[in-house]
Design a protein around this nucleic acid. Structure first.
Lengths: 326, 326
DNA sequence: CTGAAAGCGCTAACAG
DNA sequence: CTGTTAGCGCTTTCAG
């Protein structure tokens, strides 16, 4: 019985006689034989491993995304190699450990959150099948999967504008240059302009994606006695929670004195009282679309990259509800 | 210039003349040459990839653990291949995709949370370097890293007993068979017994690690008018938050009417008002100890496996503080 | 110090 | 249908 026959039994069972096939299969089972993947990959140039490069993003988002991505990947017979920030080290001086993963992996999913980070071009130039989450540009030679920040932010702002005059509406974001926050800020401003109000400088604030920043912003406004009667759109839920807690500490009630909407629709929104309105991002879909897109790129490189954008949707809860006085 | 020389330049630079070495290095840079990892691994039997198998645990814990593990792994030149539940499929009928990862990986980190899941023996029998988080047994042929549930639960219970009589103390856990919850329940009961009180059946409840279960448990107790004056130790923070919200809904105040301690010290504890006392697990240490242990096992298989147990510590906040009336 | 040659475990092409 | 052979890209003897 030759070694080639064994290989055939394992890969093209039809090319081999029933009798021999069964004999081989039995032997395989008894000896606990398992083909060496390195040898296999050396030949096929495929590892069935997908690399996932994430920024150092907020815990819950990361966990949900990875969970769904892992699920979809294993359905398709792939495994996930993760790293936070692998992509940076690749574009910088390539450390042995840093560039290492690229050669092991059939393709790369990169989540981009900053305008300054290595952009789509750089990723396309890696010359490896790639799918980018969170950033798109028509004509890019990589798959892109985004969520519609503008849509969600528009809905949130319109909702606030229904019960609050434009000059009393505020946007509290993270630093300029963050792709999500910038989009949301823009949609917020556009919605105000559509009502004929040009946003003042102090209506749009830039800080961090943290509880503390939300708290500090709200505290500063209250010190100036300028929060009561306002409607606030926070660029994520952490900021929103900071604002909510600061407001309550000072005796302001939601939605009576302050109306509040967050972004991400994370677990915390329904754990606080009142529950916090937020814009939902379909994270599981985001993850599985990214996996599907990348696998398509890996297995059918001849097809043109697709650019997918997922809808977001405002979930209205008591923190911003009109006529839900305490 | 021969191919062997290039190999030497890249791996044993000292075995080659300065001049040639530099010529090669320049060429490498200019041509963007990168060694094929599959060929390398085929020879060395090493991929510098660590597999991480996680149960489907709560998001935040998972995210923190992975984050710290990734960090430590890359410091040591390894990459992380994650999957939730890969280990089950390996012990069950080995699907092509399921068993696949084992051959690619230099070692495996498995987090165990259930008594019924494939245990330490099964993992040791995989015949691959392994480190287990969350479960230990003296003499096991794998590295184990655990956190001291007993210590933290003891501290929590003692703290509650300082201000509340033993017969008014309650433990609210997840289903029996969960390693963490069972340990914490046991420590709770032992602490009560040490005060001469044998815990009643209704003082220890088993449900799920969810907000809803905490809410339901608290609601049922309040329906029986039996929560006021109680001190509750919840097996995780989600349960604790459910209890906290249910209690507030019915006008009970913490810590005046109910005292509450959770477990995990997650973000939510400091976002709610009052802030929730909780037992802290040192997740980053847990992750890096696991990586270190596994890498030790991979690189020095001759050494005996170590069994590490990390301390936990009670963080007292307003939800349980004695004399912190509302 | 450098080149030639063998071989890691597998699959694919080619004979038989 | 099955065995023989070549070779994937690298490291490592072994000569020179």
């Amino acid at each position: 019985m030759s070694i080639a026959t064994v290989s055939r039994v394992l890969n093209n069972p039809d090319l081999v006689a029933r009798a021999t096939s069964e004999k081989v299969q039995r032997a395989v089972r008894e000896l606990g034989y398992r083909p060496n993947l390195f040898a296999k990959s050396l030949l096929s140039k495929r590892s069935r491993v997908i690399g996932v490069s994430l920024p150092d993003i907020h815990g819950e988002f990361y966990a949900e995304l990875m969970h769904a991505a892992d699920r979809r990947a294993r359905e398709l017979g792939y495994h996930l190699l993760v790293s936070a920030g692998a992509h940076q080290t690749d574009t910088d001086d390539a450390t042995p450990g840093g560039s290492f993963a690229l050669d092991l992996v059939d393709g790369l999913i990169v989540m981009l959150t900053e305008r300054s980070r290595a952009d789509l071009e750089a990723i396309a130039n890696l010359n490896i099948p790639a799918a980018v989450i969170g950033c798109d540009r028509p004509g890019a030679r990589v798959e892109t999967i985004t969520y519609d920040n503008i849509l969600g932010a528009e809905q949130a702002t319109e909702h606030l504008l229904e019960g609050t005059p434009p000059e009393r509406c505020y946007f509290v974001g993270t630093h300029r240059g963050n792709l999500d926050s910038d989009d949301r800020a823009r949609a917020f401003c556009d919605a105000l302009r559509a009502r004929g109000h040009e946003p003042e400088d102090d209506q749009v604030a830039y800080g961090e994606f943290t509880f503390e920043w939300g708290w500090d912003w709200a505290t500063a406004r209250m010190d100036a006695d300028a929060l009561a009667g306002a409607a606030v759109f926070a660029a994520n839920d952490e900021i929103a929670v900071g604002i909510a807690n600061a407001a309550r500490e000072r005796g302001l009630e939601m939605p009576r004195d302050v109306r509040l909407v967050g972004f991400d629709d994370s677990r915390i929104c329904t754990l606080l009282r009142p529950e916090i309105s937020s814009v939902r991002i379909p994270i599981p879909e985001l993850a599985s679309e990214a996996i599907d897109a990348l696998v398509r790129r890996i297995e059918h490189p001849e097809q043109d990259p697709k650019h997918t954008r997922l809808a977001t949707s405002l979930i209205v809860r008591d923190s911003s509800r009109i006529g839900a006085g305490a």
